[in-house]
């Protein structure tokens, strides 16, 4: 979350990896609903595993909510548990 606040001056630190920011914090998505398949499917890659935080950059609070939502969605067959 703090990373959202920090604004790097343009041109500086360009050799470093881009700082990842939490999509939900940036876009002010307050509630992660299990019915929103389009949103959730962005966080379940091919194998249908939940994308880890270190890759997606989601903050811990939102990752937790995302986890719950994905698991609910799986339960009602909106998302797969595993593919092949």
């Amino acid at each position: 979350m703090r990373s959202v606040k920090e604004k790097r001056p343009a041109g500086q630190k360009q050799y470093y990896r881009r700082k990842k920011v939490c999509k939900f914090c940036v876009e002010r998505i307050d509630v992660i609903n299990y019915k929103d398949v389009k949103l959730l499917s962005q966080f379940v890659p091919e194998r249908a595993k939940i994308m880890p935080r270190r890759i997606s950059g989601v903050c811990s609070r939102h990752q937790r909510q995302l986890n719950d939502a994905i698991k609910k969605a799986r339960n009602i067959a909106l998302l797969p548990f595993a593919t092949e």
């Binding site: 799986r74 067959a77 909106l78 998302l79 797969p80 548990f81």
Partner: peptide, 13 residues
């Protein structure tokens, strides 16, 4: 909707 996985032989619901 297509189900994400098969439930009791159903692929759609």
């Amino acid at each position: 909707r297509r189900l994400s996985y098969e439930i009791d032989r159903h692929r759609e619901g």
